[in-house]
Design a binder for these strands. Structure first.
Length: 135
DNA sequence: GCCAACGTTGGC
DNA sequence: GCCAACGTTGGC
């Protein structure tokens, strides 16, 4: 079981939208590193859902319900998507500000590479963020 | 709205 | 293969 963090701009697609839809196709990733991360996801893997641009906080947990396949919004087969389903909203969202100031989280890509939209998390990092969420 | 950081593209 | 120019992301 691997852990991940995915980003979305809430005015484009929010965690609440995912709860409403029940599941979604994570389409539109056009960055090689992010795509390679998507391709490594296995059914049942868990990911934190982060709101970028607005909100700037981790708001929920999602699970992978379908492994990588060709992105239907891409012309050729070189881009990939997975499907996610909501697991639960965090009782207390964790702001980027808090993550940045936590010594245990200083190495995560959210802090080190602000532009990567799909990134792996160590189990300890995943647990730490849930801890900060009062989980 | 600005701009830093990063990725990609394309000329050489 | 290098690197300048450009485009995009995303925090502030």
């Amino acid at each position: 079981m691997q852990y991940w963090l995915i980003k979305s701009e809430p005015f484009v697609y929010s965690y609440q939208d995912l709860e409403r839809d029940g599941r979604t196709v994570w389409e539109g990733v056009r960055n090689f590193q992010a795509r390679n991360n998507l391709r490594q996801m296995k059914t049942g893997d868990r990911a934190l859902f982060y709101h970028s641009n607005e909100g700037l906080e981790v708001v929920g947990i999602v699970t992978v319900v379908r492994e990588a396949y060709a992105d239907p919004t891409a012309a050729k087969g070189e881009w990939s998507v997975v499907d996610f389903a909501p697991e639960q909203a965090l009782p207390r969202p964790v702001p980027l500000r808090v993550i940045k100031s936590d010594p245990q989280l200083k190495d995560i890509a959210l802090v080190r590479n602000g532009r990567l939209s799909v990134m792996p998390l160590k189990p300890s990092e995943f647990r730490r963020i849930l801890e900060l969420a009062g989980h």
